[in-house]
């Protein structure tokens, strides 16, 4: 229930601040993060979540930042009845950042997209080895600039995968973000 309120508040912020950004798409942020699972809720009985990685690209939007990304994680089975599986979370994200000083700040956001599960199950057909499902994540991110074009960031992320019995994951991650000014041709495409 708390997550619903979180998303609702972010949605209001999105509308209230929609005209705040005067120069959208002016910068591009490339991020690579290492992630570690903190909790896998009901999956814990059957699988152990290994570390993973998150690669994303963001740009400043009319308000906040919009981006696309892909996150991968490996789940190791605790017994023979369940196969190991790898996930790919291909998502679109939006976050709103409260800037504290310069580019340093704390941001809150949501990600949504297709959560692809690739099962290491040689007995099943190829079709059943792969499954995708809608996933939504709410996250909090801290950015600390270390150079004019480089930031260190720390992230906590709560993911819900909308399977019939929900998959819920809590991940923490840390990584680097590299910032460039948007090339004119890319800006033309984005606009």
């Amino acid at each position: 229930m708390g997550k619903k309120y979180y998303i609702l508040i972010l949605f209001w912020v999105f509308f209230l601040k929609l005209n705040a950004q005067q120069n959208p798409f002016s910068e591009i942020y490339f991020s690579l993060k290492y992630l570690e699972n903190m909790d896998i809720k009901d999956l814990h009985e059957y699988w152990e979540a290994n570390h993973g990685a998150y690669l994303s690209t963001e740009t400043n939007f009319y308000t906040g930042f919009i981006g696309i990304g892909v996150e991968t994680q490996y789940f190791e089975s605790r017994n023979l009845q369940q196969p190991d599986y790898r996930t790919l979370f291909i998502n679109i994200s939006w976050r709103y950042k409260l800037e504290i000083s310069g580019k340093a700040g704390i941001s809150a956001g949501v990600r949504s997209g297709s959560y692809l599960m690739l099962f290491d199950d040689s007995e099943q057909s190829e079709f059943e080895n792969t499954e995708s499902e809608l996933a939504v994540s709410s996250f909090v991110n801290i950015d600390i600039p270390v150079a004019s074009c480089l930031m260190v960031n720390f992230n906590s992320d709560f993911i819900t995968v909308f399977t019939k019995k929900r998959v819920k994951l809590f991940n923490a991650s840390a990584g680097l973000t590299y910032i460039i000014e948007t090339p004119k041709w890319i800006k033309n495409v984005l606009e």
Binding site: L43, E45, Y46, W47, F75, Q81, Q82, P83, Y85, M117, F119, D121, E131, S132, E133, L134, V161, F162, T163, K164, K165, V167
Partner: peptide
Amino acid sequence: AGDPGPFAYT
């Protein structure tokens, strides 16, 4: 939404 996901094996 509503696939079994990994729970298909449980």
